[in-house]
Design a protein around this nucleic acid. Structure first.
Lengths: 217, 217
DNA sequence: AATCGTTTTTAGGCAAGACTAAAAATATAT
DNA sequence: ATATATTTTTAGTCTTGCCTAAAAACGATT
C-alpha cells in the first residue's frame, strides 16, 4: 500500500526531476512541499525501501519505474478530477486545485477509468496539462511560448505554465481562457511587453505574463 | 478541523444511537467499527473536548447538535457520492460502498452542493436511504416491511435494510431492484417465506430476505 | 450487601509522519 | 589545501490513532 503522504512525495519528485529521471535534492523537495529537509530524508528512505525510489545519501533521489508509474497515476487522477470539477460542477479553473489534491488520493481503479470514460477520454486538463493514460504515458503538448511567435502570427492558447491562483485570476479578469485564439500585434523592446488581440479585445500583456502563455499553431 | 477518523466515529454514533440522541456504549461502537473499546474511549474523550459529543464515563455517548450536524453532513456526502457512482459511472449498487467511504471525507462545501445540483437534488441514494440536506435534515422513508403487506397487495421496493455486499448481490442475481413493483401472492406459515411477483417473474423469497425488503405504497 | 462476571477505563507502548537541534558530508573560496 | 559556508543526515521528541494488559466500575445474583 502506498500511503497518501508517499503519493505526495512521489508526485513532487516526478515533477521536479523530469518525471523522476534526474536526481532531486532533499532540500528542493522540502521547499516545494513546505516541509523540512529532515522529514524528506526520512520519507525518501521509506520510498527506497519500497522500491519506489532510488536514493543515495547526499546525492538526491530519482524514481524507479514502479515509482514513476505510481506518480503518473496520481497525476492522472488529479487532472481528471480537475477537468470533472470544471466541466461538470461549475468550478472555475482557479478553484479546482485544492479539491483535486484530495480527490487524487482516492483508491479505486474502476473509479479512475470510469471517470476517464465519463469525460470522453480527455487528453488535457483545464490548465492545458496533458493527462497520462492508464500506463502513465502521455504525449507532451506541442506548444511554443507566445514570445517566440512572430509579430502578426496567431495561434491557440494551449497551456499556462504558472497555475497559481493569482495568475489564473488575472487571466479570468482579462477574459483569457484556454482555447482562445490569440494574435501577436506588436513587441515592445523597451520592457519586452506584447500587444495581443483576441476575438473580443486588444490588450497589452507584460513580459512576465507572456512568459507563462503557451500557444499551439 | 474534524479529522477523517473523528468523522467515522461520528457517523457510527449517529447510526447506532438514533441520530446520536440515545446513548451508545463504547463496546457497541468498537464492535461496529472493528476496533477495540479502549481506542473508542480515547476518541470519545476527544470528541467531547471538541464539543461534538456528550460523554459520561461508563454511561455511553450521545452527539451534541454540532456533532449531529457534522455526522449528517458526512452521511449526506456518502449518499450523494454513491448515487453519482451508480448513475454516472456505471457502478452497481454492491460496488459503491468502499469508494464512497473514501469520498465522504473530501472537504469542500462547494463540491458537495454542486454535486447535489448535478444529480438533480436527489432525496434517496441507490439503497433507498434518504439523503440529508445542507442542514442535515431529511424526511424519513415512508415504507413498510414486505411481511406487513397483505396477500394480493402490491407496492414499490423503496429501501433495503441490509446493504451488505452479499445481500445486494443476491438481489442483483434475482433481478430485484429499487423501484420495482412487487406483489405479494402468498405467505407460507411453515417457514414464513413469501411468494412474490414482479413485472418479469414469480419467485419465492425466504423470511430472512423478506425482513430486509421495504415497500412504499 | 458481598461476590462474580462483564463492561469500561487507565496506563503504557508502538508506528507513521512530522519537527528541532546537532553532527556529518559536501561545496566553495581564499 | 585548508577553512568556511551550505546542504544533508542523524538523533531524539511530539501528536494522532491505534494496541495490550491491568485496574476500576457496574450490575446481577444470591
Amino acid at each position: 500500500m502506498v500511503t497518501r503522504s508517499e503519493e505526495n512525495y512521489l508526485k513532487t519528485i516526478y515533477h521536479l526531476g523530469k518525471q523522476g529521471t534526474i536526481a532531486v535534492s532533499t532540500n528542493a523537495i522540502a521547499e516545494k512541499m513546505e516541509t523540512k529537509a529532515s522529514s524528506v530524508t526520512d520519507m525518501v528512505k521509506k520510498l527506497a525501501e519500497k522500491n519506489l525510489a532510488n536514493y543515495i545519501k547526499y546525492q538526491g533521489v530519482t524514481l524507479t519505474n514502479e515509482g514513476r508509474l505510481a506518480a503518473a497515476l496520481v497525476i492522472r487522477k488529479h487532472r481528471l478530477w480537475e477537468l470533472f470539477l470544471v466541466e461538470k460542477l461549475n468550478f472555475s479553473w482557479d478553484e479546482v486545485h485544492e479539491v483535486a489534491e484530495q480527490l487524487e488520493h482516492i483508491k479505486s481503479l474502476k473509479l479512475v477509468n470510469e471517470l476517464d470514460a465519463f469525460l470522453g477520454y480527455p487528453t488535457h486538463d483545464p490548465h492545458g496539462d496533458p493527462i497520462p493514460d492508464k500506463d502513465g504515458n502521455y504525449s507532451p503538448i506541442k506548444s511554443i511560448n507566445i514570445l517566440d511567435l512572430d509579430t502578426g502570427k496567431e495561434g491557440i492558447l494551449a497551456f499556462v505554465k504558472d497555475s497559481s491562483d493569482i495568475f489564473l485570476k488575472y487571466l479570468n479578469k482579462n477574459n483569457l481562457a484556454l482555447g482562445d485564439t490569440i494574435k501577436v500585434l506588436d513587441f515592445e523592446p523597451f520592457d519586452n511587453s506584447l500587444t495581443i488581440e483576441t476575438k473580443t479585445q486588444k490588450m497589452i500583456i507584460s513580459n512576465e505574463v507572456a512568459q507563462n502563455l503557451y500557444i499551439s499553431l
